[in-house]
């Protein structure tokens, strides 16, 4: 794994940890938790697209894959928290 690659992963882990902290902190307010998980999904999709673009291997299919994973994960969380 290159240094650049490791740095990108570090940023991903850092970002997700921050979202995770706020997700747990607001555990008694499901609406805020839903908003946090939406932001975390957007962050993840953004990270995936930026990371692949910086590596010069971004395609529409790869961008679509991150959008699908981000949307699916958010919808799973939304289903549990909203109902």
């Amino acid at each position: 794994m290159s240094d650049k690659h490791a740095l990108h992963y570090l940023l991903l882990l850092l970002g997700l940890s921050i979202f995770g902290f706020f997700f747990v902190y607001f555990r008694y307010d499901q609406m805020i938790q839903i908003m946090i998980s939406a932001l975390a999904s957007i962050f993840y999709v953004g990270w995936g697209i930026t990371h692949h673009a910086l590596e010069g291997r971004l395609t529409k299919l790869i961008a679509f894959e991150y959008i699908l994973f981000g949307s699916l994960t958010f919808l799973l969380v939304f289903t549990v928290l909203y109902l």
Binding site: L12, S17, G20, R27, A40, H51, E65, V77, V80
Partner: peptide
């Protein structure tokens, strides 16, 4: 030639773990 599998796992595991803890 796909997105990063490890990144997908990290994201899914962290989200489900957070959900499990606060459920």
């Amino acid at each position: 030639f796909t997105g990063h599998t490890f990144a997908h796992i990290t994201f899914l595991v962290l989200v489900l773990l957070g959900l499990w803890i606060t459920l």
